[in-house]
């Protein structure tokens, strides 16, 4: 193999597949715990999460976003989710990435306003503005709140229940059925990828040129498509053999209790309060 070496791409892909599998197992474990949100009716929980996400989206100041963040942390603790685990799951990546992205916006070049501090870097005079800092903090908190509410919903609801809830909300059957099957296929594909790449690694070793590496990866992608394409008619035969006639049926029934209604009312009040504050008192 010639050219510049670029080792590690096989390991990174295998590691990515393993991480996703491990994460799914850990999420399923959390969703199976005996916590407050785990026992809630998923229909009410999804509606509450949607109301709170819209409230976060409509919030315009740090105080509102901080109250919503305190609420999400309290709900996580009530749902038997460790604070460290939740913070690690929500703070890393998107909010931290957003923090880096928003740093240039604190300077007067992007957000003009009242100067807070000025300094010189090489040939440039930089000025941090109050409006810039406020804007960056609100942006960061909004991203953090949104990620936290979305992750809390995922952590406290089992995946198959979440899919079933979509059907209750009249999401077209083609989409829900495809989602359910896709979810299962993803794990099948991850298993195939892992096996294929480990087989390659054991034959060609760790080092490949960039060009050869690309060939290996794309041949694997094409191989994955070939294998899965050949599978689809067998899957359909298996579905028909189990009684599939074009309509997917939901077996479990959902039962609403008083706390489900209370949590939805609280979420709706938070949304109405946010809308009222931001539309009439800005």
């Amino acid at each position: 193999m010639s050219g510049k070496t670029s080792g590690g791409f096989l390991e990174r892909t295998i590691q990515g597949a393993v991480s996703l599998l491990q994460e799914t197992v850990s999420v399923e474990n959390v969703a199976a715990r005996n916590g407050f949100l785990q026992h809630r009716d998923p229909r009410f929980k999804c509606l509450s999460a949607a109301a709170l996400l819209i409230a976060v989206l409509m919030s315009r100041n740090l105080a509102e976003l901080s109250v919503l963040y305190a609420a999400v942390l309290c709900m996580a603790l009530l749902s038997a989710i460790g604070l460290f685990f939740f913070l690690k799951r929500t703070l890393l990546f998107v909010p931290v990435f957003s923090l880096f992205i928003v740093v240039p916006a604190i300077f007067s070049g992007v957000t003009p306003g009242e100067p807070l501090a000025s300094f010189k870097v090489l040939l440039w005079n930089l000025t941090i503005t109050r409006q810039g800092v406020d804007s960056a903090i609100v942006f960061f908190m909004r991203v953090l709140d949104s990620v936290s509410f979305a992750v809390l919903l995922v952590l406290t609801t089992r995946q198959h229940v979440l899919l079933k809830t979509l059907r209750v909300f009249r999401v077209p059957q083609l989409f829900v059925m495809t989602m359910g099957m896709t979810y299962r296929y993803i794990f099948l594909f991850l298993d195939i990828i892992q096996k294929m790449l480990i087989a390659i690694k054991s034959r060609v070793g760790f080092v490949a040129s960039t060009r050869d590496g690309r060939k290996i990866v794309t041949a694997n992608m094409a191989g994955l498509w070939l294998r899965s394409y050949r599978l689809h008619s067998q899957v359909y035969d298996a579905m028909v053999a189990r009684g599939f006639s074009g309509e997917a049926f939901v077996l479990d029934e959902f039962h609403a209790r008083v706390p489900d209604v209370v949590i939805l009312l609280a979420a709706l009040m938070a949304l109405i309060g946010t809308l009222w504050l931001n539309l009439f008192f800005r």
Partner: peptide
């Protein structure tokens, strides 16, 4: 979904 998980070597 999984195609995004493949790490493709670049120069």
């Amino acid at each position: 979904f999984v195609i995004m998980m493949f790490n493709v070597p670049i120069p």
